[in-house]
């Protein structure tokens, strides 16, 4: 588990990337959300032994990351951090699915290893796409897009508050845990200690929420958050959506890798 400070740092980084101005940033967030969702669903729709046919899909996160100026190292690090659960479960496959499918040289390759590899590839692709989406769109814009796509307004407003006070509360929690660590002499805190720390944090949070609500009322809040930004779903967005989704469909139904593999096999003696 990463430390609170590093998580806070990470959050700030993401927010910083989202504030850049590139072709990808200028696209209507709705277009990016739709394409990313299509990407994830299509990647998930392959059967469990697919590995190679998934590879061409990497072009989507890579192309967007490059066009949006997202550093590759950052992306790689965060995908690697998020991967363990899927991989942990995936690693069980070789134990249960031991049928040997073919030999790579003298190494027998079982179906379990293939499906494990498939899980790893899926994880990298889907996690990468999600990270790229947020890093190049920004959380508030993703929220606005989801709202535009039918998410209830109350929920969108609430997520906006969550995002805004994330930074404040993570700092608050970091200060509390630092103070706790300084007085606990290097031992892991006991549940009772953590509980009272969390209880205090909760009460402070509650009071803050009450003050925020007062501040909103003072500015004529009547239960609705008006968003100022107006995105336009123009030709560029339509082209973006149609272009990527048709590429995904082609890659889904035509195994490009097989084509490439046979091509290579033909060229090589």
């Amino acid at each position: 588990m990463a430390s609170i400070d590093s998580i806070a740092e990470n959050l700030r980084h993401l927010d910083e990337f989202a504030r850049a101005d590139t072709v990808v940033h200028r696209l209507d967030p709705r277009a990016k959300v739709v394409v990313t969702l299509a990407f994830v669903v299509i990647v998930a729709s392959f059967d469990r032994y697919t590995v190679a046919a998934l590879m061409p899909f990497a072009v989507f996160p890579i192309a967007l990351a490059v066009l949006g100026g997202l550093p590759a190292g950052y992306l790689a690090k965060n995908v690697a951090l998020a991967i363990p659960f899927a991989l942990l479960i995936g690693l069980f496959n070789p134990f249960f699915d031991r049928e040997v499918v073919f030999h790579l040289g003298s190494l027998p390759v079982t179906a379990g290893w293939i499906s494990c590899a498939s899980i790893a590839v899926r994880a990298v692709l889907t996690l990468g796409a999600a990270l790229v989406l947020v890093a190049l769109t920004g959380f508030p814009a993703v929220c606005a897009a989801l709202e535009g796509l039918g998410m209830p307004r109350v929920f969108a407003a609430q997520m906006q508050f969550l995002h805004r006070y994330l930074f404040v509360l993570v700092d608050d929690a970091a200060r509390s845990t630092r103070a706790l660590a300084l007085r606990s002499g290097g031992n892991a805190p006991r549940p009772t200690t953590v509980a009272s720390l969390l209880g205090l944090l909760l009460l402070r949070t509650w009071q803050r929420a009450e003050r925020i609500h007062l501040a909103m009322l003072a500015r004529a809040y009547q239960g609705e958050l008006h968003s100022r930004e107006t995105w336009r779903f123009a030709a560029a967005e339509v082209a973006f959506v149609i272009g990527w989704v048709s590429l995904f469909c082609i890659l889904r139904y035509y195994d490009l890798t097989r084509l490439l593999g046979t091509l290579v096999a033909r060229v090589l003696p």
């Binding site: 805004r164 404040v168 003050r211 909103m216």
Partner: peptide, 11 residues
């Protein structure tokens, strides 16, 4: 308000 963090809640 006293604490501007309570007053600035938009993105």
């Amino acid at each position: 308000f006293q604490n501007p963090d309570d007053q600035l809640f938009m993105p």
